[in-house]
Write a protein that binds this DNA or RNA. Structure first.
Lengths: 135, 135
DNA sequence: GGTTTCATACTCGGATAATCCGTGTCCGAGTCTGCATGG
DNA sequence: CCATGCAGACTCGGACACGGATTATCCGAGTATGAAACC
């Protein structure tokens, strides 16, 4: 099991948007250029982030993406959930009557990770990269 | 991203083996029966656990699987790693010069989860299920 | 000058294709047990 | 009684098939900008 490339693209895009002036629009073309992805594919991923309410899109000339006014500093977990979905990492396929003990342990483990990711905001990283590389 | 069914089978098999007499051999047929999987497929999964040194196999008539004498009480993490591999869940595909900040955060998050799973032994579950259901 | 028109630069969304990986089956090979057969 | 052989019950491992998800690409549609054209 592995996180998808789409999640990778989404996280890097968000980091870039957090690092730029809040109101400024950035085109898909630029964002795709930085990550060496095709713009059309990246736009599909960003659509998910729009629907999750983390970024806004403006069409037409000089259009592009920028952070959402509300929720301008999303956590890692929010971004990941927007791309990967909310389902838990482990689902016991057996149907032993009630709660599967293994399932319970796995869910607890996942909560450990998610709690960490929920406390990590994108802005923390942005402030770490002062004059360093841009992604 | 999701844990594979193979991991599910491996965990349930280990739980069953931990719950039975240490020296007793259990055939793939029995183990597969309990989990409603095909024996041939389950044997492929168990081969990985054998190579990881967590169980032993005996071929021939009355053969089967049992816990390894050394390492008779593996942790969740060991089992998962044996099936899913050791690679980290997130790998930044960009090649920005050095350590990717995003990558670092993701690795930390994973370590949170793995630390939890490393402290969870199979035997803990086995002792919880006294007379309850067997898987 | 003000309004209209139009080319241009974008995002949006559906349809489609390619590729990879998990899941599972099949089958031949090797291995051990236990019984039967024969000296 | 002992040894040999053999059938049966197992695991082992590779080759292969299938399906679904990920990763894209293409293209038509909608939308906003800005400049040119027209009155």
């Amino acid at each position: 099991m592995k996180y998808s490339k789409a999640t990778n693209y989404a996280l890097h895009t968000m980091l870039h948007l957090v690092s730029t002036a809040p109101e400024q629009l950035v085109s898909v073309h630029q964002l795709a250029e930085l990550q060496k992805v095709s713009p059309t594919y990246l736009s599909k991923i960003l659509t998910k982030l729009v629907k999750a309410g983390m970024i806004e899109s403006t069409s037409g000339a000089n259009g592009g993406y920028r952070l959402s006014r509300k929720n301008p500093d999303p956590s890692f977990l929010e971004i990941i959930h927007a791309i990967e979905g909310q389902a838990s990492l482990f689902e016991c396929s057996q149907n032993h009557n009630a709660g599967c003990l293994i399932q319970q342990v796995m869910v607890q483990a996942e909560e450990e990770m998610e709690s960490f990711l929920n406390n990590k905001k994108m802005s923390e990283l942005a402030s770490q990269m002062k004059g360093a590389h841009s992604l």
